[in-house]
């Protein structure tokens, strides 16, 4: 009998305690905010969308190799020494490799940050931008290369020309060598 009344009393009493807690919170300061109008500050270290600085990228492909989900696609072209443009990197050193294609598929990216740590020139960086949803998956593939298709075509031709020339020169040299040997 005593147990019964005790049971009823704890039932009632703990409910009152709970109500006191919620009443206290009813008048507490609210913690949520009006999201798109107000935002919490995002620390600069936060790993959100990636951004490539094409000027800095030297096409070493380290990032695409380390990426655990293979979402970075890099294509490179050698810069011919005879290039009339004399391309330069961000710090003025001559560029050795063109990067005609540098695509990141953000639908796959897991924001692990490995690509940014291996990059020797800090060309690829995380930004604090996290609002870039889109309607199609294609829109999530970002093309970072700053080379226009014409330019790529031109550089390809240049390279082809140059390699052909080199080959010819090499062949000539070789034939000279072999002819020497014959002699």
């Amino acid at each position: 009998m005593i147990d019964y009344f005790k049971y009823v009393w704890t039932w009632f009493y703990t409910i009152l305690i709970g109500m006191r807690v919620t009443l206290k919170h009813l008048f507490a300061k609210k913690v949520t905010i009006q999201y798109p109008n107000e935002r919490y500050p995002i620390p600069p270290i936060a790993r959100n969308r990636l951004q490539l600085d094409p000027d800095r990228c030297n096409g070493c492909m380290q990032c695409s190799r380390i990426c655990p989900v293979q979402c970075i696609t890099v294509e490179t072209l050698k810069v011919v020494p005879t290039d009339p443009e004399k391309p330069r990197m961000f710090d003025g050193t001559p560029r050795k490799i063109w990067v005609p294609r540098y695509d990141i598929d953000f639908a796959k990216c897991c924001f692990c940050g490995l690509c940014t740590t291996v990059c020797p020139t800090e060309a690829i960086k995380h930004t604090t931008d996290f609002e870039y949803s889109s309607y199609t998956r294609e829109d999530l593939i970002y093309h970072f290369s700053d080379m226009s298709p014409e330019k790529v075509e031109e550089k390809k031709n240049l390279l082809a020309e140059w390699t052909a020339k080199e080959k010819a020169a090499k062949a000539k040299q070789e034939s000279e060598v072999s002819s020497k040997e014959v002699n």
């Binding site: 919620t22 919170h25 009813l26 009006q34």
Partner: peptide, 13 residues
């Protein structure tokens, strides 16, 4: 609103 305030939210705004 009351549920929101009890839970320290703003509720519909």
């Amino acid at each position: 609103k009351i549920s929101a305030w009890i839970q320290e939210r703003l509720g519909p705004m």
